Lab assay of single mutants.
Amino acid sequence: KLLSSIEQACDICRLKKLKCSKEKPKCAKCLKNNWECRYSPKTKRSPLTRAHLTEVESRLERLE
């Protein structure tokens, strides 16, 4: 599967780190437990900047 097509777990399953069936409108866990089942939009991760990478590398060197 391509990364862009990976389905996201519902908010509660993601928060509780449960295996989500990803069914809509309610996944199996939410249906069974009568929880409100919501699927928040995916958040875009910002790409690493060179400055951040350099900072992490220098912190790693100090720890070694």
Rank of each mutant, 00 (worst) to 15 (best):
I6Y: 11
E64V: 12
L18G: 15
K16T: 01
E55L: 10
E57W: 07
E55P: 01
E64R: 10
A51T: 04
L3E: 15
Q8C: 04
L3M: 12
N34K: 12
W35Q: 13
C27Q: 04
K16V: 00
R50V: 06
C37W: 01
W35H: 13
L15F: 11
V56I: 06
R59D: 00
S21Y: 02
P41E: 07
S21G: 05
E61G: 13
S21F: 02
Y39R: 06
K17T: 03
A9W: 02
H52I: 04
L2Q: 14
R50T: 05
S21W: 04
C20D: 08
L60V: 14
R45C: 03
S21I: 02
R45T: 05
K42G: 08
K17Y: 04
L31M: 14
N33C: 12
R45V: 00
V56A: 01
A51K: 10
A28H: 13
L53R: 10
K26N: 15
C27A: 04
R50S: 09
S21C: 04
C30P: 01
N33P: 00
K44A: 15
K32C: 09
R45S: 03
P41D: 10
K16G: 01
C10L: 01
Q8N: 09
P25D: 03
R45D: 01
T49C: 06
A9M: 02
T54P: 08
K16Y: 01
H52W: 11
N34W: 04
K24C: 14
S5I: 10
L18W: 10
E64C: 10
K26V: 10
E61D: 13
R62G: 08
T43G: 09
W35P: 07
E57I: 01
K29R: 10
K17S: 04
E57S: 07
R38N: 15
E61K: 09
A51Y: 09
Y39F: 09
S5A: 10
K19W: 04
E23N: 14
S46Y: 05
P41H: 06
K32A: 11
L3R: 09
E55I: 08
Y39N: 02
I6D: 07
T43F: 08
A28Y: 12
H52E: 08
K19E: 04
Q8S: 11
C20Q: 05
C30T: 07
E36V: 15
K22E: 05
C10G: 02
L3W: 13
P47G: 06
K1D: 09
E55R: 10
C20T: 05
E55V: 09
K1W: 03
A51D: 05
L63T: 01
R14D: 01
R45E: 07
R14G: 02
I6V: 09
W35N: 11
R50Q: 06
L31K: 14
I12A: 10
A51V: 14
C20Y: 05
S58W: 14
N33L: 12
C20W: 00
K32N: 13
L18K: 04
K26R: 14
E55W: 13
R14E: 03
W35K: 12
Q8K: 06
C30H: 05
C10V: 02
K19N: 07
C27D: 09
K44P: 15
R50H: 00
D11W: 05
T49H: 08
R50C: 02
K42I: 10
N33A: 11
K19D: 04
K42D: 06
T54A: 06
K32T: 13
K29M: 07
L2K: 10
L3S: 09
K1R: 11
D11I: 05
Q8G: 06
K22W: 03
L60K: 10
E64T: 13
T43V: 12
S46E: 03
T54S: 11
A28F: 10
S4W: 09
A9I: 08
I6K: 08
T43I: 14
R14S: 07
S46M: 07
S58R: 09
K24Y: 15
C27F: 07
C20L: 05
L53N: 02
N34P: 00
H52T: 03
P47Y: 06
K44I: 15
I12P: 11
T54C: 08
R62P: 09
K44V: 15
P41A: 09
A51E: 04
K24S: 15
K1C: 15
Q8A: 11
K42V: 05
R62L: 14
L18T: 06
S46V: 01
N34S: 12
L15V: 10
C13M: 05
L60I: 09
P25L: 02
L15R: 06
E7R: 05
E7L: 11
